[in-house]
Design a protein around this nucleic acid. Structure first.
Length: 672
RNA sequence: GCACCCGUAGCUCAGCUGGAUAGAGUAUCUGACUUCGAAUCAGAGGGUCGCAAGUUCGAAUCUUGCCGGGUGUACCA
């Protein structure tokens, strides 16, 4: 019986006792973790609730402590419960039977539900993340999106959900058009010339997406002075959307090459995808028409005959009493007959939920080193592969998109709910997060001249159009260089290849943890010093704990001792924490019980859509292990009982730590 | 104007659906490498939780109103 199961059985017991003793039915019973081990392992503040309910029912005032005493007797008899105490104003603190718990759970999987996510019968959900416009290299803000999304995917899988990862490719939008304008009109290059340039860049070690990054910024500048260039963009955009022409072919090459580059960048961060749905297919396969017909049938959309929106199809949205009622309407089809982005998004969202009644064609796009394939959509039946996994059709769809798009996301959610009321609004979840901005010194470090006004600001928004941002690959390169220097100073004996691989793992750990430790609603004001740090609350700190734990077991293995051996010897009923001084016993037990909380923490992170909860937990677990590590030497411990408890606890901690880090996409190096 | 987010230690941030003495990291100062690895650990100082009312046995947390900062509110994507 693991910790979560003990919690559940105690909740059941509290519920039935409350009903028997006070005739009160409790719907929700809160379990907390006391701030210190000395206070217990689980706390129930339920007596406060009961006191309130009794007062409501009878009008009589009752003392929470007295109520807690009644419940205490019932809980005291439960399995795995050592003792129960009433503390504070009426807390019910449960102390778990330490030796019994340890003996039974020494070898338990810290994330038991993760195996069910492989079951084809498990509930399927779709997560869309990354979705970088394929016209330039990814910057640190995009990485926040991807790391948040990828970690959320791992969290969902750890709770037993089957997850499909989608990375939406907006290959026909203005951002791609801008770069195409740059290639054709300011660089005077046709497709052949671009291919030649691209080949040269790759040979040079400069990638295509970096080139486009600069070109995009140059075009952005040129628009300011050259009105005719802007007019050309409209033409380019039209040709791209239409397809089957030289400009569209050129745009397709540019977009596809950028997608390849971005996928490569994300692969460095251990991020993989299942499917790349493209906007061009949503267009060419007429997804919108299908959704449009449905919305018309249901009256969810209205044609405007008069006023400033005359000629548009609009969706009524929200209500603003006293204001112009049209202000709340959202245009889905423009008066010239073209569909807006929001309209296309509604159709796409319906497809994700399996409710559109249309499907893409698919072909493989790329194969990862582990053999896993990522697929891409196509509108051309001839190039499609008929044997492909079933895509889309999620029970729930999570869209990882920054908070600035909350309004359009809300429109999409309402639009879908209007078409399929039985699925409702709950099926679409906008996993929003705040932006990554630059501190004024960081912007200057990147070589940008700031106005006096900008210097006064607390942060400066990154901008692809201005070319202002920290490129993901460049930052990771810097982290790898720094990490490599540290590794070289410690492990001169290791071959270069090994040292580089360790430096890479540390760099990824540093950046992923840095982006995950902030809650989603916090604006990350990027600061080089903080992001490049390997000390304090960092990924490196957590990895270091795990590495040290592993080295203990390496040493034990050299002596022919395995954790399994020690787990087996726990079965003897004689062993007890009393072999340690009380203070030591508390400290060791605190680590064991904290390690047991991983699955509950992951569940919480999934429920609240907040990966930062897992990051904080992982850091605390690493800290607790370090404390344990300093105070209790395992290798030199001669007393058999003490040694057993220490080994088993250290093993639980390192397995939880490793699983927690893995759920955040962070690997544990062999040494560091 | 309206909607959403933020305001907690010098700085950067946690604080779960109200609960135990408000916590981390960093910076500053002081200690600890002949030990399973010091990318570590121990200790010290540092707080009117933006302000003001209200609800409650109890508020950093909930409600309302202010103040300060940010983002959105396109026939752009």
């Amino acid at each position: 019986m693991q910790l979560t199961e003990i919690q559940e059985s105690l909740r059941t017991l509290v519920r039935s006792t409350a009903l028997d003793a006070f005739n009160i039915e409790l719907e929700q019973i809160v379990t907390e973790y006391p701030p210190k081990t000395e206070l217990g392992d689980l706390a129930f503040p339920v007596a406060f609730d009961l006191a309130k309910r009794i007062k409501q029912a009878t009008g009589e005032k009752s003392n929470p402590r007295t109520i807690a005493e009644t419940l205490k007797t019932a809980l005291g008899t439960a399995e795995f419960v050592g003792r129960v105490e009433v503390a504070g104003a009426g807390y019910l603190n449960v102390f778990i039977d330490r030796s019994k718990y340890l003996a039974e759970n020494a070898a338990a999987d810290p994330l038991p539900q993760r195996t069910t996510s492989l079951d084809p019968a498990a509930q399927k959900v779709c997560v869309e993340h990354t979705s970088v416009n394929p016209n330039k290299a990814a910057h640190i803000g995009h990485v926040r999106n991807s790391v948040l999304g990828d970690t959320f995917v791992r969290i969902l899988r750890a709770t037993g959900k089957r997850v499909e990862v989608q990375n939406y490719i907006d290959n026909t939008g203005v951002q791609v058009a801008d770069v195409v304008v740059g290639f054709i009109y300011t660089e005077n290059k046709d497709l052949a010339a671009i291919k030649e340039l691209d080949a040269g860049l790759t040979a040079d070690g400069h990638s295509f997406d970096f080139y486009c990054w600069d070109l995009y910024a140059r075009v952005g500048q040129a628009y300011k002075t050259d009105e005719s260039l802007k007019e050309k963009r409209a033409g380019v955009l039209h040709l791209i959307e239409e397809g089957n022409n030289a400009t569209a072919d050129l745009a397709d090459y540019v977009a596809t090459r950028n997608v390849e580059c971005i996928l490569k960048t994300m692969e460095r961060f251990s991020i993989e995808y299942d499917l790349l749905p493209r906007e061009s297919e949503i267009l060419h396969l007429h997804f919108w028409n299908k959704a449009f017909e449905r919305m018309k049938e249901l009256g969810a959309i209205r044609f405007e005959y008069h006023g400033k929106l005359a000629g548009c199809w609009v969706m009524p949205f929200g209500s603003h009493a006293g204001t112009d009622e049209h202000e709340a309407d959202k245009i889905l089809v423009r008066s010239n007959g073209t569909v807006t982005y929001t309209g296309k998004d509604i159709a796409y969202q319906m497809w994700k939920l399996g409710l559109l009644g249309l499907d893409f064609y698919y072909r493989p796009f790329h194969e990862y080193p582990d053999g896993k394939k990522v697929w891409i959509t196509t509108a051309i039946k001839a190039e499609a592969v008929s044997e492909h996994p079933a895509f889309g059709g999620g029970e729930t769809v999570y869209n990882v998109i920054d908070t600035r798009q909350s309004y359009p996301q809300e429109v999409v959610r309402m639009g879908v709910a209007a078409i399929v009321p039985d699925k409702g609004e709950a099926a679409s979840v906008h996993l929003s997060y705040e932006m990554v901005a630059l501190s004024p010194p960081a912007a200057e470090e990147l070589g940008f001249q700031l106005s006096d006004e900008d210097k006064k600001r607390s942060f400066i928004e990154m901008s692809g159009r201005k070319g202002l941002g920290v490129k993901a690959d460049e930052l990771l390169d810097r982290l790898e260089i720094n990490a490599l220097a540290e590794v070289e100073s410690r492990h001169a004996e290791e071959p270069d290849e090994v040292r580089r691989s360790i430096a890479h793992q540390l760099a990824v750990g540093a950046l992923r943890y840095f982006l995950l430790k902030f809650t989603r609603t916090t604006v990350i004001v990027f600061d080089f010093k903080e992001a490049l740090s390997f000390e304090g609350e960092t990924g490196c700190f957590c990895q270091y704990s795990a590495v040290r734990a592993n080295s203990i077991f390496r040493k034990l293995a050299e002596k022919g001792e395995s954790p399994e051996q020690f787990q087996a010897s726990m079965a003897s009923p004689a062993f007890s924490f009393d072999v340690f001084e009380p203070e030591s016993a508390d400290q060791i037990w605190a680590l064991a019980i904290l390690a047991s909380r991983l699955s509950d923490t992951v569940r919480q992170a999934a429920e609240q859509n907040e990966p930062a909860i897992l990051a904080k937990y992982t850091f605390n677990l690493a800290k607790a292990f370090n404390l344990f590590y300093h105070n209790h030497k395992i290798i030199v411990e001669e007393d058999a009982a003490r040694r057993t408890i220490l080994v088993v606890t250290a093993d639980m901690a390192r397995r939880s730590l490793t699983a927690a880090l893995e759920t955040m996409g962070i690997e544990v190096p062999e040494r560091m």
